Amino acid sequence: FDIYVVTADYLPLGAEQDAITLREGQYVEVLDAAHPLRWLVRTKPTKSSPSRQGWVSPAYLDRRL
């Protein structure tokens, strides 16, 4: 999967189903980028939180090589 970094805090609107909150600087794996406005991502697990999966706007993501 492609690795992206979150460029700004992402707080989903209440109406968005299956969306997750992301923090600036967080790394995520993009699982599904087929839709231009919503990408399915999975967060990297940390010592304090397990990995999470949900939909985010790709405008908040920047690809890492």
Rank of each mutant, 00 (worst) to 15 (best):
Y4Q: 01
A19D: 09
V28R: 00
Q26T: 12
E16K: 05
Y4I: 02
A34Q: 14
F1Q: 08
L13V: 12
P36I: 05
A59V: 11
L22S: 00
G54Q: 04
L40N: 02
L61H: 01
R23L: 12
A34W: 07
L11K: 12
T46R: 05
D62M: 12
P36H: 06
V28I: 04
P50C: 05
V56N: 00
L31C: 02
L13W: 10
K47D: 15
L11W: 14
L13I: 11
P45N: 06
R38W: 11
D9W: 03
P58K: 04
D62S: 14
V56E: 00
V5N: 02
G25K: 02
V6E: 00
V56L: 04
W39M: 01
R23M: 12
G25F: 03
K44I: 15
L40A: 01
R42C: 04
Y27N: 04
A59M: 12
A8R: 14
F1M: 10
L13Y: 10
A34E: 11
R42E: 03
A19C: 07
G54H: 05
E29F: 13
P45C: 08
L37Y: 11
Y60S: 04
D2S: 10
A8L: 08
T21R: 11
Y27R: 06
D2C: 07
T21N: 09
S51E: 08
T7D: 02
T46M: 07
D18E: 09
L65Q: 14
D32L: 07
S57H: 12
Y60C: 05
V6Q: 00
D18F: 09
I20V: 07
Y4A: 07
P45I: 04
D62L: 11
D18K: 05
V56W: 01
R23Y: 15
P12Q: 06
R23N: 09
D32E: 08
L61Y: 00
A33W: 08
R64W: 15
Y27P: 04
L37D: 15
T21D: 10
A34D: 10
R38C: 08
S51A: 11
F1D: 07
A33K: 15
G14H: 13
G25D: 02
V41D: 01
H35M: 08
Y27W: 13
T21V: 12
R42G: 02
G54L: 11
V6A: 07
T7Y: 03
R64N: 13
V6H: 00
E29Q: 10
A8E: 08
W55H: 03
W55T: 03
A34L: 09
L22A: 01
P58C: 04
R42W: 03
D62Q: 14
I20A: 03
S51G: 09
K44D: 05
W55V: 03
I20M: 08
W39S: 00
D62C: 09
V5R: 12
T43W: 08
L65V: 14
D32T: 04
L61I: 05
V30W: 00
A8W: 05
A33V: 05
Q53P: 02
K44C: 12
S51K: 04
T43G: 01
P45Q: 09
R42A: 06
T21C: 11
G54R: 01
R38N: 04
R23S: 10
K44G: 06
D62G: 11
E24R: 12
Q53A: 07
Q53F: 07
V28Y: 01
G14V: 13
Q53M: 14
D62R: 13
Y60D: 03
F1W: 12
A19H: 14
Q17W: 13
